[in-house]
Design a protein around this nucleic acid. Structure first.
Lengths: 189, 189
DNA sequence: GACAAAAACTAATCAAATTAGTTACAATGT
DNA sequence: ACATTGTAACTAATTTGATTAGTTTTTGTC
């Protein structure tokens, strides 16, 4: 047992909270250590430095996102499930802006562990689209369409990039409608 | 006249090139200075530090993107123009991954200068959508839909986040079709 | 109670951004 | 041609943060 009750989980979840509050790129190990009541080198007993912390934040975030989406689509199918999944994604991403930022950096950390973190999510999405009358290949394309839109739109919202004063909630709703209507045209009769 | 022919423009365009080659976050002022044949403190005569450099990269990128899109949609209208604009965005973003990364960080730099950098682009998009038979308010929503999708999809491609081996080009084409078909359902008769 | 492992600590190193203060160059006016 | 002046470069120093090395403390086990 550790002297301070400190462990990797506590570090990650505290870092996630700090990332949401002050921005991912503003976290320093010194601040995190201070916050946890230890000196910064002590963190190295649990994590492998700042890059490793960010990678673990990414995995932590995708796992949480997956849970949210799974809960959101339970008992629903077809386009209603797609809609519910989109809202779950968007809500999680915008409630956790700092963590979502970490989640976007796949490229720096390509390995088995990170692939696994996102593959669970995709298999959920794939099951949802499988209930539509659309070819498997097109389902794969659609998932990419949705991922692109959801990540981009969430990022724009988190960055307060919409100068225009019109409602963001309405934009999201209309966007999801547009996507669903577009997807319907791919149905095979 | 400067001793080395060094000026802000040369710094920015060299930094853009380096960002594309090795990633935005891997650029250091030392490297940039070495590359330009000066010592790193000398850069401070032209730029106001690393954050200012990134802000200027962002503005530089959006301006170039705007030019690309303007050229792409000249002489086209309606959905063909939307399609052409989407492709121009996507191509610029994926040809310039490091620079595109800088372009995404609106939030760190919110001021008149950065607002101007993106507003030009939106007015182009707005003119394009204005040729459709869709209410002005919905046009504003649609622009957000497209921005979200284009930024997110480009980011995913740049980060090699699509593990699945199916064609990315086909996914993009299908995505644009889905969006356009969805947008058509907003037309007023 | 002694030992082994884990987890904390202090001290030191390294790299990078930035600032302070100084020197060299290049344009301009006499 | 020469002195003046502002700009842009330089060197040296500072600061901050990550990381590493080496040491000490605690905790669980025998």
């Amino acid at each position: 047992m550790s002297r301070n009750g400190l462990d990797t989980n506590r570090i990650i979840s505290r870092a996630a909270q700090m990332a949401n509050e002050m921005g991912l790129e503003n976290i320093t190990l010194k601040m995190l250590a201070d916050d946890l009541g230890v000196k910064s080198p002590s963190l190295y007993n649990h994590i492998d430095g700042l890059d490793d912390l960010k990678m673990q934040l990414m995995i932590y975030g995708w796992n949480q996102m997956e849970q949210r989406i799974i809960h959101a689509v339970i008992g629903i199918s077809g386009y209603d499930a797609i809609r519910a999944g989109c809202y779950a994604f968007y809500e999680y991403a915008t409630e956790n802006p700092g963590l979502f930022n970490a989640m976007l950096w796949y490229n720096k950390f390509q390995n088995a562990e990170t692939m696994e973190a996102t593959s669970g999510l995709f298999s959920v999405l794939f099951k949802v689209t499988a209930s539509l009358n659309i070819s498997e290949e097109n389902c794969n394309h659609i998932i990419r369409t949705l991922r692109g839109f959801l990540e981009g739109f969430s990022l724009l919202v988190n960055n307060a990039a919409f100068g225009n004063p019109i409602s963001i909630a309405e934009s999201f709703e209309l966007s999801v409608n547009v996507l669903i209507e577009g997807i319907k045209t791919l149905e095979e009769k």
